[in-house]
Structure formats: structure tokens, C-alpha cells
């Protein structure tokens, strides 16, 4: 045991003597910190340039206020003139421009006749699912004004009520819209709007651990070339590289776990540690298999970007595409297992 511990210490010491290794250890918390502060900044998926051509129109003001209050995927930037909003879309500052005219009058006509020209001008560079979804948000913001107009029209037609005070009194039911739907994550905590910005953290840290294993495999090829461990028995020569991969990965894994913990993304200490240990072992095996298959530093260095790119694309780091062949990647196992913790 004593001899084994000494081996472990010496192999670890070899890692810590390399500046690149310190760099990657520092990178784990730095990467997490950067993504954490990015998520705290808050973000929206769609940016809209909003223009009220008649700023005194009550329905337009109601719609604008509703959009400004919403904490959803749409960020609203207000512009004074349709041309400047259009320019913002052309420049890419905004994804769409929504130009609101005299809504009150137009919605009233729509409610009474059931037909009207479009009431909102939408300018886009392209139409995509996100912008379609943003228009649903616009419809939801417009809906209170439309609903008032429909209600007023029916009350006027069926009951002859046109008095604004009575109409408002009858309509305003006192709904607390915000409390209709609550949002939680699986742990019962409140889900932040910008949580998607933090979702790749675990995957990127897992890639760092994999990269450490692959880097250790590069060192091991150097050891083979220099015949560093030639004096060991055959089983020893098989075991030492694998041990060195795992030992190189462990400090990175610890840094990754600490970073996840600091970002509030851990789900139970024991489960996380066990899972990370299993992941380190899987990465070490993959690195060792690649080292034995490729044999030279050049070939292994050539394969590293492909392994990282494939892991990035096939594992659920940024999105779960559910593509075939993903099961051969340790990152995919690790991330799926982490969801079950």
C-alpha cells in the first residue's frame, strides 16, 4: 500500500510540474465563474424593437406595458420611429420590429365586424420558430386589449351597455395573472429564466476532465518513447499508464466538482463524487484505448479535436439531439447519469 501511495504521489507530482496542467485546473473555476456571471446578467432569446406610432393610444400602451413586464424570452427595446426600428432589425441589433398603430380603434372595429386589416406591423430578417413564438407573446400582450374590445362589443350588442365605468367594473375580475403558473425545477427550487446559459457548465467541465485524460495519454506516449517505465514488469507497464490517466484526471475532477458546487449545480455530494469517479475511470479507459491504438503523439493529437468535437455535438451539453452513436462517449453517460441524481 505504501509503495502504491508513493507511485500515486510521484505520478501526481509529474502532472503538477507542468504549467499546462495548472492552467487547466484554474480554467475549471474560471469557466464556471464566467458562465455564472453571464447567467446572472440575464438574457432573452429574442430582442424586439417596439414602436408606438401613437404613444397616447391606451391599447398600445397596455400592450407595451405588458411586454415590458414580461420576464420571458422576449427582450423589448423601445424606439421612437418605425424607420429606426427597421434599421435595428437590418443591423441585427434587434431580431424583429413590432410597430403598433392606433390599436384601440382598430381592435374595436375588429371586435364589432370580425374583420380588419392587420393591426401590428412586424418586420423581420427571417421568420424562424423563435420569432413565431415571440409573436405568441405579442398576441398574449395584445390579448387584454382585444378581450376588452370583444367584451365591450358583446355587452353593447346584447345588453345595450356602453357605459365605460360599468363595463370596466364588470370586466375587471381582479385576476392575479402572475400566480396562475408557478415554475420549479426537479429539486423543487425556482427555475431561473437564464438557466439555459448555465446548462452547458457541467458538460464543458466534463470535457475538461476528458481532455486531461487524453493529455495524460500524450504524456504516456512520451514515456514510451523515452522508455521511462521499461524496467517495470509487463503487467506494471500496462497498469501504470491507466493509473496515471486516472490520477491526472482526479484533481481536474475535484476542481470541476468544486466549481459545480460553487455554481449551485450539484445534486448530492456522495452521488456526485461517485459519479465523477466512475466518469474518470471511463475517460481513463478511453484515453488508454486511444493511446494503444494510435501509438504516436502526432496521431493522438490529431484525434483529440475530433473526440472533443464529437463529444460536444453528440452529448447533451448544449442540446440533447438524441443522435445515434452517442452511447460510446463517456460524456454522454456522465451527463445522462447526472440527470438521474
Amino acid at each position: 500500500m505504501n509503495r502504491f501511495s508513493r507511485w500515486c504521489l510521484l505520478l501526481l507530482k509529474r502532472c503538477f510540474r507542468r504549467p499546462g496542467y495548472w492552467f487547466i485546473l484554474a480554467a475549471a473555476p474560471l469557466l464556471t465563474l464566467a458562465l455564472l456571471s453571464a447567467a446572472r446578467e440575464g438574457s432573452r432569446l429574442v430582442t424586439v424593437a417596439l414602436v408606438l406610432t401613437d404613444p397616447r393610444d391606451p391599447a398600445a400602451v397596455l400592450t407595451r406595458d405588458s411586454l415590458a413586464r414580461s420576464s420571458g424570452a422576449v427582450r423589448v427595446l423601445e424606439f421612437d420611429a418605425p424607420d429606426s426600428a427597421r434599421d435595428a432589425v437590418a443591423d441585427g441589433t434587434a431580431d424583429a420590429a413590432w410597430i403598433l398603430g392606433s390599436l384601440e380603434e382598430e381592435l374595436r372595429a375588429y371586435a364589432e365586424t370580425g374583420w380588419t386589416d392587420p393591426v401590428i406591423r412586424v418586420v423581420e430578417r427571417e421568420d424562424n420558430p423563435l420569432l413565431m413564438l415571440a409573436r405568441e407573446r405579442l398576441y398574449a400582450a395584445l390579448f387584454p386589449a382585444l378581450s376588452h374590445a370583444e367584451f365591450d362589443a358583446l355587452m353593447g350588442k346584447r345588453f345595450g351597455v356602453t357605459d365605460e365605468t360599468i363595463l370596466r367594473e364588470r370586466y375587471d375580475f381582479g385576476a392575479d395573472l402572475c400566480s396562475m403558473v408557478l415554475f420549479e425545477d426537479l429539486s423543487g427550487g425556482e427555475r431561473e429564466e437564464s438557466a439555459y446559459l448555465l446548462s452547458p457548465v457541467r458538460g464543458l467541465l466534463a470535457l475538461l476532465v476528458l481532455l486531461t485524460g487524453l493529455a495524460s495519454a500524450l504524456y504516456a506516449i512520451g514515456d514510451d518513447r523515452r522508455e521511462t517505465f521499461l524496467w517495470l514488469s509487463r503487467p506494471g507497464r500496462t497498469f501504470v499508464p491507466l493509473l496515471s490517466h486516472i490520477l491526472a484526471e482526479l484533481p481536474t475532477a475535484a476542481a470541476a466538482l468544486l466549481s459545480l458546487w460553487a455554481a449551485g449545480l450539484t445534486r448530492g455530494a456522495a452521488g456526485e463524487c461517485l459519479l465523477m469517479l466512475a466518469y474518470c475511470a471511463a475517460c481513463a479507459v478511453l484515453s488508454e484505448v486511444l493511446r494503444r491504438l494510435l501509438r504516436t503523439e502526432e496521431r493522438l493529437a490529431a484525434v483529440i479535436p475530433a473526440v472533443l468535437l464529437i463529444s460536444l455535438a453528440l452529448s447533451p451539453i448544449f442540446a440533447d439531439l438524441g443522435l445515434p452513436l452517442r452511447g460510446i462517449l463517456p460524456t454522454d453517460w456522465y451527463l445522462r447519469a447526472a440527470m438521474l441524481l
Binding site: 432569446l45 420571458g72 424570452a73 422576449v74 413564438l133 405568441e136 407573446r137 400566480s179 396562475m180 403558473v181 408557478l182 415554475f183 420549479e184 425545477d185 426537479l186 427555475r191 429564466e193 438557466a195 439555459y196 448555465l198 446548462s199 447533451p316 448544449f318 442540446a319 440533447d320 440527470m339
Partner: peptide, 18 residues
């Protein structure tokens, strides 16, 4: 109020919430 419990934290969760 009804409660929506999100699974993954990716963009699809934001869209569902929207």
C-alpha cells in the same frame, strides 16, 4: 396556481415556460 416543473435547463424549457 398550477406548477410547471422543468426538466432540462436548456432552451426548450424557456420556450415551454413562454
Amino acid at each position: 396556481p398550477v406548477t410547471y416543473v422543468c426538466g432540462s435547463a436548456d432552451v426548450s424549457a424557456v420556450l415551454a415556460r413562454e
